[in-house]
Design a protein around this nucleic acid. Structure first.
Lengths: 219, 219
DNA sequence: TGATTTTTATACTGTCTCGCATAATATAAA
DNA sequence: TTTATATTATGCGAGACAGTATAAAAATCA
């Protein structure tokens, strides 16, 4: 459960030779460590995750953690950014390739459910929602990040609905921004319910109903 | 900021004489103390709220807290039950008196917003959602309470939509359970966004859009 | 080889944490 | 009064916690 302490000296052959750093080499890969930290934070949240836990999970001792990521709060914020980057990467081609709106929404929610339901010791939900529910109230900087997360999702959905409307898939009276809020609401409700271990089947039923309502049952 | 240490000896005149307890009288009223504890938990959550904080807020010293409510976890669970009782009480006459569905929903969401946006140091959102986002994953008993909270809300909304359908306010094709899930989703999204300090106006716009979508714009 | 640089490893510090043990206090009953 | 009971008040103790100081280790450079 620890990063292997001696990394293979192999360097990608074609890649430009990285000018070997000067001192003792790192025993960890920052990307891997950050992913492990994110795993922990997603499960228990900021306050209930100790530096000892983080140290054990990342295989880094305390001073290395500080050197690499700063204090606990900074590590949390970097973990959150990483979460957002991962989620964005998982969705990127959906938002790029234009498909029929219903298909598009179905794929988005399927990926969201994969993210929310993953985790060895139970589903972990959406990290944006978790952070909103905890640190966001008392920490302005974290609150700003969370708010940005909400807005980003709203905008992405709105773009989908606008596109669909132009294609004539939605009634002319349809309001893309409003529909986007409902699409986000659906994301939020399945994220929260996932943490209470509502089974995937039920969450999928909620998603299906939401799509029907937003796009019209006949589609 | 402390409960007055000597309570007025006045007993409700008409009420049956309470057979005075034997030992030293309590310096606190359990109901008041529980409300203060709930206030704290709603703001910072379980892990970030210390017994010292709780002691200060309730005006009870540590042993009294333990005597009255058990350990921190028990106090948290009792606070949560109290939250649910309060919310239920605030909604009771809405779910009893049958009104047009749109009016009914509007009133429910207005009360919900009052609850979510209250708090001296910023909006605190919905305690059910907060608990789902934190303790629910690792604590089965708390998870069960949270799940119950979701189900209770879903059922209450479903009853509203069923009633409206019988009255002919909704299309015959309308599915009350499905609409209930969307109504709950709307609750969840405004609860979460409230904690990120989204202004009330915006939350009200989301609510209005959701009602239009669920009930049909023409109403 | 020796000096320099960067990271790891160990251990420490002061603070906070929860839960409880003990003693003081205030009431009712005998 | 004295005794029994129920609460408050004080504070202890073992452990967890975040962050850091110091020393050892592993690499590059000269």
């Amino acid at each position: 459960m620890v990063q292997k302490s001696r990394r293979p000296s192999s360097v990608k052959p074609g890649a430009a030779a990285v000018p070997r750093r000067r001192g003792r080499p790192r025993a960890y890969e920052p990307e891997v460590a950050l992913a492990r930290a994110l795993d922990l934070f997603r499960k228990d949240g900021f306050a209930a995750t100790s530096l000892d836990d983080l140290s054990a999970a990342t295989g880094m001792n305390r001073p290395s953690l500080y050197g690499a990521f700063g204090d606990k709060r900074e590590l949390y914020m970097k973990s959150y950014q990483r979460y957002r980057d991962d989620a964005r990467a998982a969705m990127i081609d959906i938002f790029r390739n234009a498909q029929p709106i219903r298909e598009r929404l179905a794929r988005i929610y399927a990926i969201a459910l994969d993210i929310y339901l993953s985790g060895e010791s139970g589903p972990r939900g959406c990290f944006t929602v978790m952070t909103a529910a905890s640190e966001a109230v008392s920490d302005p900087e974290i609150r700003a990040m969370v708010l940005e997360g909400f807005v980003e999702l709203d905008k992405a959905f709105a773009a989908c609905f606008r596109h669909a409307k132009e294609k004539g898939e939605l009634p002319v009276a349809a309001d893309p921004e409003l529909l986007a809020h409902m699409a986000s609401a659906t994301i939020h409700t399945i994220a929260i319910r996932a943490r209470a271990r509502v089974p995937r089947k039920e969450l999928e039923a909620i998603v299906k109903g939401a799509i029907d309502l937003m796009c019209g049952v006949k589609g």
